[in-house]
């Protein structure tokens, strides 16, 4: 098994310490940082996403894998910057105003990071205008809104309206998700993409930013 496979396997199993040991070893062997990122970490996280989507693994396994991946990407960051490797796009993500739920939102963030997307996490209880301003300030092409409650889901419509008023609606895609959200709601409020789970959200985001 190549060292890239070793790193990928360790990451998928959430073995952060192994990932931390193997990455410097791979760099010493002459494997490029970008290759480690693409072929070990992102490929591994993609596999984690598939297995999660197919109910082969569960939330804890995704979390430990994501933490191991983050450990790896932190190690690689200076090498990637030196090599001029850019992220595959930037996205802002948050749970909408009035809603304090963050479990689903955090899973989506981790899955999208696993696709090589730089995520700006605004947290919970986020004002519509904050989504828009952050997207403008950080030159993000994607805004991801989460809502768990039927009482807060309509704030997503306000985010869409804010994007229109700010004149950036044609420059950003707005993705939405959460327990009460469905495709019909997505169409009604004029958002771009609804996905039912974190793994599908990450795949959709990667396609949108490709």
């Amino acid at each position: 098994m190549s060292i890239l496979q070793d790193i990928s396997q360790a990451m998928q199993k959430g073995k952060a310490k192994q990932v931390k040991q193997l990455i410097p070893q791979a760099l010493e062997e002459g494997v490029s940082a970008n290759q480690i990122l693409e072929e070990a970490l992102l490929a591994g996280m993609s596999e984690v996403g598939k297995r999660f989507r197919d109910n082969e693994i569960f939330v804890p396994e995704v979390l430990v894998a994501a933490r191991a991946m983050n450990m790896g990407t932190e190690l690689l960051k200076p090498y990637l910057q030196q090599a001029g490797v850019e992220p595959k796009g930037k996205a802002v993500i948050g749970t909408v105003k009035g809603d304090l739920h963050d479990i689903g939102k955090n899973l989506v963030r981790m899955m999208m990071e696993g696709k090589g997307i730089e995520m700006i996490d605004l947290g919970v209880d986020v004002e519509p205008q904050t989504f828009i301003q952050s997207a403008i300030d950080n030159d993000c092409k994607l805004i991801c809104c989460s809502a768990l409650l039927t009482t807060t889901m309509n704030v997503i419509g306000d985010v869409v309206e804010c994007a229109k008023q700010a004149g950036i609606r044609d420059k950003v895609k707005i993705m939405i998700g959460g327990a009460p959200i469905n495709q019909q709601f997505c169409d009604t409020v004029g958002a771009d993409v609804y996905t039912p789970d974190a793994a599908t959200a990450a795949e959709a985001a990667a396609s949108l930013l490709a």
């Binding site: 693994i57 939330v59 479990i103 689903g104 039912p196």
Partner: peptide
């Protein structure tokens, strides 16, 4: 969760 168990049946 909305889509299934949070953790595995074994856990």
């Amino acid at each position: 969760t909305q889509r299934g168990l949070t953790f595995s049946p074994d856990v």
